[in-house]
């Protein structure tokens, strides 16, 4: 099974070792690094579970059998969170691309979910600001 990302609901970026995924509908943030960032990159490129296991096995020097359960778990969580969806008709790309970074020992992919980021920044003393940032009030506060 391959997967795709609903661009209407999910925006994502990777910068070096970290990936950040935002569900723009719910406002939830999902952050991960290490093997998760690599797994996400591969899924975004159209990798199936087996493709990802094979490529990550090679990348991390660990057997595919060893890493497959963790990959399946992580994909299950991503599906449950609505960050990816099954795309049975998606075709395999010609190859895979991952950033050239030093990699630590394999650890099962995991990501953190932050469902209250907006609340967190609202706690800041510079809340009630507009897009331009502090000290500019949002339009509803200007007269």
């Amino acid at each position: 099974m391959r997967y795709d990302i609903d661009a209407q609901r999910v925006t994502h970026e990777r910068l070096n070792e970290e990936v950040l995924i935002i569900n723009v509908v719910s406002g939830a943030y999902y952050s991960g690094s290490g093997s998760f960032a690599d797994l996400w990159s591969l899924l975004a490129q159209g990798a199936s579970t087996e493709d990802a296991a094979a490529h990550l096995s090679e990348t991390f020097g660990e057997s595919a059998e060893t890493i497959l359960p963790g990959i399946r778990d992580s994909i299950g969580h991503l599906l449950a969170k609505g960050l990816i969806r099954e795309a049975p008709d998606r075709e395999a790309p010609d190859g895979w691309s991952l950033p050239d970074l030093p990699r630590a020992e394999w650890q099962a992919p995991s990501f953190a979910e932050y469902t209250d980021m907006w609340d967190l920044i609202q706690l800041d003393p510079i809340h009630e600001v507009g897009e331009a940032g502090w000290p500019f009030a949002p339009p509803e506060h200007r007269t």
């Binding site: 925006t11 910068l15 070096n16 935002i22 943030y29 980021m117 920044i121 510079i126 897009e131 940032g133």
Partner: peptide, 20 residues
């Protein structure tokens, strides 16, 4: 650093840049 501004942007790249 634009700590809250990067979150407010809802652009995934901005918080990553701040982390970097």
């Amino acid at each position: 650093l634009p700590l809250s501004g990067a979150v407010r942007s809802r652009n995934a790249l901005e918080p990553l840049r701040v982390m970097q």
